[in-house]
Structure formats: C-alpha cells, structure tokens
Design a protein around this nucleic acid. Structure first.
Lengths: 168, 168
DNA sequence: ACAGAAATAGTCAGACTTGAGTATAGCGAA
DNA sequence: TTCGCTATACTCAAGTCTGACTATTTCTGT
C-alpha cells in the first residue's frame, strides 16, 4: 500500500474549503499547485473514487444547463477527522525526497572529466532556469504559497551550491 | 510512459561493472544505494526483464550447487550505448524533486498555531535524526558515495534552515 | 543431531498511474 | 450558418510497482 497520504490530504483540504466537482479540482491543482505536487487529472479522479469508497467524501451528480453531468464531491465528518489526522502526521513527519540526478554522479567516472564538466554546466543552467520560474511564480500565485515557494528556493540554492562545489 | 531512466541507468551501470544475478543486484542496491534511490526488489526484477526485452542486457540461467536457478544478467553493446546516453542525459538534466511535506504547510491554518509549532518541532527532530543517519552512512559506505551523501546533507541543512525560519 | 532462524532466489495478484481517447457545449470568424 | 477550435468532464486500456508469499538451502545453538 503506497502512501497517498499527502495527495489525500490535498484533496480533502480543498474539499474542506468548499465542495467541488472533479474538473474544478483538477483545474485548481494544475493552476496553483502543480509546482509542488505531482498529481495528474486521471489520478485525481481515481483518488476521489477511493476517498468516496472509504467514506471520506460523498459524490453527487448534478448538471448545469446542457453540459455533461458532473460529480460534485463534498467532505464528510469522517473525512474531516481523517483530514486532521493526515495534517498532523504530515506536519510532524519528514520524508526525505529522492534526487533522480544522484545516479548520474555515481557513474561520472565512466565519461571523460571534461565532458562531465560540460554536462554539469548545462545542468547548472537548467537549475538557474528553474530558479527563475519559481521566482516568477511568487508574483503570480496567492500569498499562502509564499512559504512553500521559499522552501523550494532554499533547496534550489542548496542545489546550486552543491553543483558549484562539484565543478570546482 | 513514465521515466525509468535513472533506474535503468543504475542497473546498467552496475552490470557494466560486472555481470550479476538478480538477487545480487538487489542486495547491492539495498546495502549501498537505498539511501539515494527508491527501487524495491520486485521492481528490479521487473526492470531487468524489460531491459532484456529491449536488448540492453542478456539473461542466462545458471546454478551453483543445489541452490535454485539464478538468472545472470550481462550488458550488451546496445546496452552500453544506451548507458552512455542515459548517463549524459542524467548529468545534464535537473529534475526538481517533490517535497511531500509541503502539502501540510498549505493547510497549517486549519490547526491552532501552538499545535502547528509543536508538530513542526517534532518534524525538526526527525530531520535531525535523518541528518545523523546520513553522517554515519558516510563512515560506512565506499568513498564514491561521499559526493552524494554531501549532496543530501546540504539539502538536509537547507531543510533545517527553512523549518527554523517557519518556527520563528 | 536436529529444530528453528537466516539466507538465497525469485513470483504474482492486486493496487496505482497516466496518456490517449470519448463526447458534448459554447463561441468566434468567414 | 456552419466549420473548426477551445472548454467541459470524464473513462479506460495498458503500463508500472510492490507487499506478501513460496520454496529450498545453509547456518547456529543446544
């Protein structure tokens, strides 16, 4: 059983604020949260179905005008409780991320040092580009997200420090 | 088609060094790489089968004594080429990780500030524990891994900085 | 000498994930 | 008015991942 908890937390947190239909949830995630969670649209539908199955949300079909039916999700009292538990667990826990780019470094001796340097130089440019994107997000997204953007920026800086150390 | 590339890179890199059977590969990963890659044993078998299907490794069954048969994997010339390509791509790329614990922060206002503080204090202890574990790894693992351990330590430090900023 | 633990070597059902596809509605331009 | 493009709302087949399990061999303590 993999650990959906943070995505469940996200979905329940959104529904806690207000009832929403699937498309709306996905739109919100894509526009405001994509930079810090990885959750595709089809996966969100799947998870919502699971939350319903577990009694944490209810599903109600409605239609507006002649548009196709939509399923409106609403959090249940059990869902509220679950949300609180997930939130407490999430805040108290530290889950170290995995850095996909570590693997390359392990095998760097299989390439000529000069080429490794060039490749890492390119990586450095990509990191700088990502840093810029984060900075511009800060001006676009609501202020609730500032702490998280700052979190990402701190790590990007750490990444730049490390790669410069490797280049030296 | 998800992006196995870093795990393929890992498997090919190990086989490039010497032929190995599945169990041996898994043992090595569990003992030396678990701290920087997330790859379960059954997944490794699955990926090896895929690499074979794609012609990057060959599989040969052998038996030693009365033990059950084992499948020995050996990298092919095509696998060598693929390895080089994956390695170059990996070194030149930056793949920002996702931080599972960000989600909690988004919803922190749903709990009393004092409790949030206590929970984050606990998280901080967990980060410190993780930092210690990394430091002790540095004394146990071969020196090739030092750069990567350093990489993780830099990020753990960044994480501690950030959380202390939040607590203040 | 022999029972129980640990190591060896995988297999597989079932859960998770997602790109590609389906189907209808509104809207702007020619 | 009608052709095509975008927005709305999902669905699903196919691919991926892993916890739990099987089965045999070798050690270890008594």
């Amino acid at each position: 059983m993999p650990d959906h908890s943070e995505r469940q937390l996200l979905l329940l947190g959104l529904l806690r604020h207000q009832e929403m239909h699937g498309y709306q949830i996905n739109e919100f995630i894509d526009e405001q949260m994509a930079f810090c969670v990885d959750l595709k649209r089809s996966t969100a539908y799947y998870l919502l179905e699971r939350l319903r199955h577990e009694g944490y949300v209810t599903e109600e079909t409605e239609r507006t005008g002649n548009r196709p039916e939509r399923r409106v999700y609403r959090i249940t009292p059990a869902g509220e409780t679950h949300f609180q538990a997930l939130l407490r667990a999430n805040l108290a826990t530290y889950t170290p991320p995995t850095y996909a780019n570590d693997i390359g470094l392990i095998f760097h001796q299989h390439l000529p040092p000069a080429e490794v340097r060039t490749l890492l130089e390119t990586r450095r440019q990509n990191i700088l580009a990502h840093q810029q994107k984060l900075k511009s997000l800060a001006t676009v997204l609501p202020t609730d997200h500032l702490a998280i953007i700052r979190h990402h920026l701190i790590h990007v800086t750490a990444e730049l420090d490390w790669i410069e150390e490797q280049l030296a």
